[in-house]
Amino acid sequence: MKSKTDDKKINKALLLNILMITTGITLWWFIYKSLPEISSWATYSLLQIEKGSHIGSSIEFFLYDTPKVMMLLFIVVFGVGMIRSFFTPEKTRAFLSGKSEFAGNVFAALLGIITPFCSCSAVPLFIGFVTAGVPLGVTFSFLISAPMVNEIALGLLYGLLGWKVAAIYLATGLFIAISAGWVIGRLNLEDHIEDWVKQTNASGLAMEEESLTLNDRIIYGWDAVKEIFARVWLYVILGIAVGAGIHGFVPEGVMAGIMGKDSIWSVPLSVLIGVPMYSNAAGVIPVVEALLGKGAALGSVLAFMMSVIALSLPELVILRKVLKPKLIAVFVVVVSSGILLVGYLFNIIL
């Protein structure tokens, strides 16, 4: 039993945490708002680089975007980390098993965004879902949405390109996850799951439910920040460096020819370039930002970004352990078609 002094201690810690978070956010806001001035001052006054030069424009982009992306990433990952502490793959599975097909696809895609999930546990998760009676197509909706529509991408798109692009990304990502999962479900490919999966009895040991306090959730969010930063910081800096190079040295409008909306080949080309590339949202989005600035069409750029983060070779290799080659091929084809469709759609309507 907890004693009264213990309770007081916890309350004090909580208060302290809340105080620190409020101060942190206020400070964050002020620094964030003054980033344009700081980066411009650092480039042209501190480093004495000539205004209007290619290199100056690149460096300013880099010095502006790096802290901006890092700061956005920080706040988004922390917030989503706290939200995620309410969800577990176990709860998601319990919720999804027994859902009808279409509704199941929709819920799976939505839960894919907020359920904590690391691609290295894609296989046990897949087995856990399928053996618990979650339909194959619904499982795929989850597996597609989880990496593609993620909080890092959403937060960065919102911060760098505005809420419209972020909303388009969210809507189309969900659309692809729902429809691709539904199509895979309709194709009746259950026979193309590796045989050992079906023989696995995954009911095994279950863990007792943990109850978390608000303080625990704050720690959870903080842990998420540390973990994600350790994983992505290098990608972010490389991505921004590439973006900065494009921003400073690629002439205005060049991208309009290659990735512009009038070129029929731009969307499939973007997907072809994107699939073998393995990066994460945090690294791709600064590149995307720079490409858009040089006249690339939104549809082509969306297609590029989605194929980089949703279809990756390492993930396919992991999934091969549970899926026979035909099902892997169907997965790649269906998801790429969805991405192509979205790319063309946006190039036509915008």
């Binding site: 577990t88 546990s121 296989v123 046990p124 998760l125 995954a202 040991l205």
Partner: peptide, 19 residues
């Protein structure tokens, strides 16, 4: 993978102490 799945867990890493 097979053994991991048979424990009924699907988030890794996972720690099991005395079953």
């Amino acid at each position: 993978m097979m053994e991991i799945a048979s424990y009924g867990i699907f988030g890794t890493p996972s720690v099991i102490v005395d079953n």
